[in-house]
């Protein structure tokens, strides 16, 4: 089996990793209470999604 001749240096490893980047999630405003919330997700502050109460004390 062919094998690598040399170990990849830390420099090469780290250079490869310069393109590994975290991306921030997309946030939006809740149309009901104006709080910042995740898109396509019920609002954690007021429990509304698309004009409906989704979260309340029972769940």
């Amino acid at each position: 089996m062919p094998n690598p001749k040399r170990k990849h240096s830390k420099s090469r490893r780290d250079k490869r990793r310069t393109h590994y980047k975290a991306t921030a999630p997309a946030f939006g405003k809740c149309p009901n209470c104006g709080e910042t919330k995740l898109h396509h997700t019920a609002c954690n502050a007021c429990g509304y999604y698309n004009g409906r109460v989704i979260l309340n004390s029972t769940l």
Binding site: N32, T41, Y49, R52, V53, I54
Partner: peptide, 30 residues
């Protein structure tokens, strides 16, 4: 309806409901 991530294990949580049993809808909120 998605609720975001759970704190304990980071799993994405959602509510599954019967459409006809959640009838209150606030048109002002949409």
């Amino acid at each position: 309806v998605k609720l975001g991530q759970r704190i304990g294990d980071g799993a994405r949580v959602a509510i599954l409901e019967l459409v006809d049993y959640n009838t209150e809808r606030d048109e002002n909120a949409v």
